[in-house]
Computed example of a mutant assay.
Amino acid sequence: MRDALRVAGLPDHGTFPRAIVADAQKVLQVSFVSLDEVTTHTVRAYLSRRGWKSMPDGSDRDMHGCIVALRGTAFLFYSRKDSPDDQRFTAAHELAHFVLDHLVPRQKALRFFGDSIRPVLDLQELPTKEQLLTSALDGVPLKAQVHLMERDDLGDIHTGDVLRVEQRADRLAFEWLAPESVAMPVMKQGPREERAARLQRTFGLPRRKAEVYARVLAQREGAPRFSLSSVLGERNPG
């Protein structure tokens, strides 16, 4: 996680809710795109108009967000029909995927192989057997990456529940939107039953995410050895 924060290099911030989109676009090669509806069809159409050949696969379906990343850049989509708090969290979550699952492995590959790997990472050359093996073992992406933030039947954001990559993305999104060093004092400033509401109001978190984060911080407060990574399922935090 420390590597991800360093690689992202987002500017210091002192006001909340955080303008995560503006902060990210100052330092990273990312384009945030709000659409009336985020579906595989609307994302394909948007990318096609801009000459991108890497498109989300599968049948058309409604999503909270989507990311398509290649060559150290990314388009990050989010739905205008969601609430401002949901849009903010979707943007942070998808940005976390870009950093954790694209930029960090890309920098790792460049450090290991040197600049000779860049044409492979940029899809200009085919990888060697050694490069393919390293990619498989270390999770280095050698093709365009697509991540879809789908809705379930209730329209909820499906994150932090099953997949480790989703759990890590949530963890980084929380750290950007509501850093523990700031969120913990806010949570303590009033009745226990209003903790989630204070986090939601101060940091602009979706209600359900604020409730999760309040439980995480409450357990951490009472147990010094407790960690956010243990709640979100990350066994080996970076």
Results as ranks from 00 to 15, higher is better:
residue 23 D to K: 00
residue 27 V to N: 08
residue 17 P to V: 08
residue 99 V to H: 03
residue 5 L to K: 13
residue 38 V to H: 02
residue 50 R to C: 10
residue 114 G to I: 12
residue 77 F to Q: 03
residue 40 T to Y: 01
residue 58 G to T: 13
residue 25 Q to A: 08
residue 49 R to N: 11
residue 51 G to E: 11
residue 37 E to C: 04
residue 3 D to Q: 14
residue 86 D to V: 14
residue 10 L to I: 07
residue 44 R to E: 07
residue 71 R to Q: 07
residue 52 W to L: 12
residue 79 S to I: 03
residue 42 T to Q: 07
residue 76 L to T: 02
residue 68 V to R: 03
residue 93 H to Q: 09
residue 64 H to P: 03
residue 93 H to C: 07
residue 116 S to W: 00
residue 42 T to A: 10
residue 50 R to V: 07
residue 88 R to D: 05
residue 36 D to P: 10
residue 7 V to T: 12
residue 32 F to C: 09
residue 95 L to H: 01
residue 3 D to S: 15
residue 4 A to L: 09
residue 31 S to R: 12
residue 13 H to L: 10
residue 110 L to A: 11
residue 118 R to A: 15
residue 39 T to K: 01
residue 3 D to P: 10
residue 30 V to E: 04
residue 81 K to W: 08
residue 82 D to F: 03
residue 107 Q to P: 00
residue 104 V to C: 15
residue 94 E to N: 07
residue 68 V to H: 02
residue 6 R to K: 14
residue 12 D to G: 11
residue 45 A to G: 00
residue 92 A to Q: 02
residue 70 L to V: 07
residue 54 S to P: 03
residue 19 A to E: 15
residue 56 P to L: 04
residue 29 Q to Y: 04
residue 112 F to N: 08
residue 4 A to Y: 05
residue 72 G to Y: 04
residue 88 R to E: 06
residue 60 D to I: 10
residue 38 V to C: 05
residue 82 D to Y: 04
residue 14 G to F: 14
residue 119 P to V: 14
residue 29 Q to N: 14
